[in-house]
Design a protein around this nucleic acid. Structure first.
Lengths: 230, 230
DNA sequence: AAAAATATGGACTCACTAGTCCAGCTATCG
DNA sequence: CGATAGCTGGACTAGTGAGTCCATATTTTT
């Protein structure tokens, strides 16, 4: 009878203070279990009992930590997104070369290939796709989920990628019209959406890795065909 | 006690014979109601009782016609898709000009704008998006749903659009490299994915229609920037 | 007009789930 | 060491939803 939902709920707006009550190790275990079970079964079908079992924790503990199913779902979503965003950010630091160091168009292509490939891999294979589907499916019933998703994810990564690509344009390595540069995140969207064709159904039986690379390359080449200076 | 699921179920493979038992008007009413309720509430939350009520039909009648919830869902999905595909096909007939009649690049741009705009409007606003989300969300649990979706929808429309675009390339109005032409549906995908940026979250408060048009134009211009001959 | 097929509505079974309550157990920390 | 916060497991409430059954009514076909 510790925390039977004291706060009057502060969803809509922003960050619930959420003092980290209880043992953090249990909290982690529950969060992970929630990830597993929600992603496997979907929001409605997933049972708190199943999550508690998966986390090797009693049901009451789940309620002590997270209050109710919906808040548990949100906490799990935030958690997965935070870790993914960190991953993607690191990726951009690591794989994106200093524009001034690129010697020729082949270098540029290689860099984009590397970056777009890793980006797509992280964002579109792995648990994030499934999670996105869930959020999408639930968003009809919990509209703020959508907004939260964007605020928490794409709104953090896309401007970053867009800045990197704009820098290439400024350095003369890409020839991008001003109308495009002026629209927030558009350039980043164009690159990732194209490379995202990598996500279209890959026939079973086909070598996934090879096909994946091929499609990322198609996307990057389309992007370059539009914006490579000549 | 007419049809308590006699057939041993023939999902996985192809078309259930499904002789149209019962009154077709009731069948239509149920299908429409199923559309409304499933799309509003999602698969799990939607109740057969609610659907029956919406269709002004008794619960038993629903079961007589469709056997169970899952088959009802599939029948509804097929129905919506069939009607959408018909719509899109008609659109292509209507809006896509004879390549030989196009006099200049401005004509081409206008034609693509028209076609892509209508296409995106039909496919990405309206009930189909919501349905797609549902199928996506359920596909974890009923894997054949995905395949059925593609077979029934994109597999019918994309090759058609691709053929139209290829014709433009053949007529010299677009300059598309052979590697692209050789990949099935790639060209069509590139156009629609680009114009599909129109679907990215439009801020509430912004004039939807204007913003929509602007984005479709961005997509088409990107496409043309890559493939317009010079 | 009789026979056959369908539709109705309401009662019923069965399974399942969110969330609560509680009495006893365990780890932690002053 | 003893108090306290957190954890456990299981029993319990209250609600919901799929699918069935059936006696009665309505519609369609012959």
């Amino acid at each position: 009878m510790t925390a039977t939902a004291k706060e009057p709920r502060a969803h809509q707006e922003s960050q619930e203070p959420q003092e980290p009550q209880g043992n953090p190790r249990k909290r982690r275990a529950i969060l992970n279990a929630a990830g597993t079970v929600f992603l496997r079964d979907g929001f409605t079908r997933a049972g708190i009992d199943a999550i508690a079992a998966e986390a090797k924790v009693s049901k009451q503990t789940v309620y002590n930590h997270f209050g109710d199913k919906e808040r548990l779902f949100m906490a799990m979503t935030d958690d997965v997104q935070d870790r993914t965003v960190a991953h993607v950010m690191e990726l951009m630091d690591r794989d994106f070369p200093d524009p001034s160091k690129l010697t020729g168009p082949e270098d540029l292509r290689a860099a984009l290939l590397q970056l777009a490939g890793e980006w797509i891999r992280v964002v579109y294979t792995g648990p994030l796709v499934a999670l996105r589907k869930l959020v999408d499916a639930e968003s009809e019933h919990h509209p703020y989920l959508q907004q939260r998703w964007f605020t928490n994810g794409p709104s953090r990564t896309m401007p970053r990628l867009n800045r990197l690509l704009s820098a290439l344009a400024r350095a003369g390595l890409l020839d991008v019209p001003a109308e495009v540069l002026d629209v927030p995140d558009l350039l980043a969207y164009q690159l990732t959406a194209m490379a995202g064709s990598a996500v279209r159904r890959i026939e079973p039986g086909v070598d996934f890795e090879a096909e994946f690379q091929r499609r990322v390359a198609q996307g990057v080449d389309f992007f370059l065909r539009a914006y490579a200076p000549r």
